Amino acid sequence: MSAFHEEIDVDRTPEDVWAFVIDPSHMPEWQLSAVSAEQLDEGPLGVGSRLRITRHVGSRDMPMTMEFTEYDPPHAWGMRGIDGPVRGNVHGRITPLDDGRRSHLTMDLDFEGHGIGKVLLPLVVRPQVRKELPRNEQLLKDKLEHTAA
């Protein structure tokens, strides 16, 4: 069981949801703590691809590298943090609804603390995520439902 679990229904196809969620350039549009995100390697995204994500955590901007551990368009993805004091583990799943006209999005998120991250995790990171994650999902839903296909 993950530390954080969120689910939403979105009035967009699984392919539309996938295209938006998986594109690193959109991350700052729907994740409040994301300052920037970029792919670090050449070619299409897939298992093993790495992203550099800078997040505003507490009063600091913290860069971190995430690696795709699962990549199954337009159904599921997984990522794990591979550096930094706080390393996230993310799993997302998109399930079609109404013959594929709508989508059910599930996201699970947990963290590992390394070094100072063991202190930051309970004091700063988890409380911030607890507040932010439901808002992120609402932002994502609003972006997807109010953007032309």
Results as ranks from 00 to 15, higher is better:
12 R>C: 07
7 E>N: 08
33 S>T: 15
99 D>Y: 10
77 W>V: 01
48 G>V: 13
62 M>V: 13
123 L>P: 00
78 G>C: 04
87 R>S: 02
121 L>H: 00
88 G>I: 03
28 P>N: 15
122 P>W: 07
57 V>Q: 08
60 R>P: 04
26 H>Y: 14
40 L>I: 12
3 A>K: 14
123 L>W: 13
123 L>Y: 11
3 A>E: 14
22 I>S: 08
17 V>D: 01
126 R>M: 06
134 P>H: 06
143 K>S: 13
139 L>V: 08
145 E>S: 13
67 E>Q: 15
108 D>R: 06
8 I>Q: 02
41 D>C: 11
4 F>P: 00
94 I>D: 00
1 M>Q: 15
33 S>P: 05
127 P>T: 12
51 L>I: 15
48 G>Y: 08
33 S>L: 12
110 D>T: 10
147 T>F: 11
8 I>E: 03
31 Q>Y: 10
13 T>S: 09
102 R>M: 06
9 D>N: 13
4 F>M: 06
10 V>E: 01
114 H>K: 06
138 Q>D: 11
85 P>R: 02
33 S>N: 10
71 Y>C: 04
75 H>A: 12
144 L>P: 01
7 E>C: 10
91 H>Q: 11
141 K>D: 07
92 G>Q: 03
103 S>I: 02
48 G>D: 13
82 I>E: 08
105 L>I: 09
47 V>A: 06
63 P>M: 06
75 H>Y: 09
25 S>W: 07
86 V>W: 00
64 M>R: 04
74 P>G: 10
16 D>P: 03
39 Q>R: 14
94 I>E: 00
69 T>C: 04
28 P>V: 13
83 D>A: 09
144 L>A: 06
120 L>T: 01
130 R>S: 09
59 S>D: 14
102 R>A: 08
94 I>N: 00
58 G>Q: 11
53 I>L: 15
80 R>F: 01
97 L>T: 05
143 K>E: 11
53 I>G: 00
58 G>D: 09
68 F>Y: 14
19 A>G: 11
128 Q>Y: 10
52 R>K: 12
116 I>P: 02
8 I>D: 03
82 I>T: 13
33 S>M: 12
16 D>S: 09
48 G>E: 07
119 V>Y: 05
53 I>C: 05
149 A>S: 15
43 G>Q: 10
55 R>Q: 14
5 H>S: 12
120 L>N: 00
140 L>M: 11
85 P>K: 02
120 L>F: 12
72 D>F: 09
92 G>H: 03
122 P>L: 10
101 R>E: 10
145 E>L: 09
131 K>W: 11
40 L>S: 09
75 H>P: 01
108 D>L: 08
45 L>D: 04
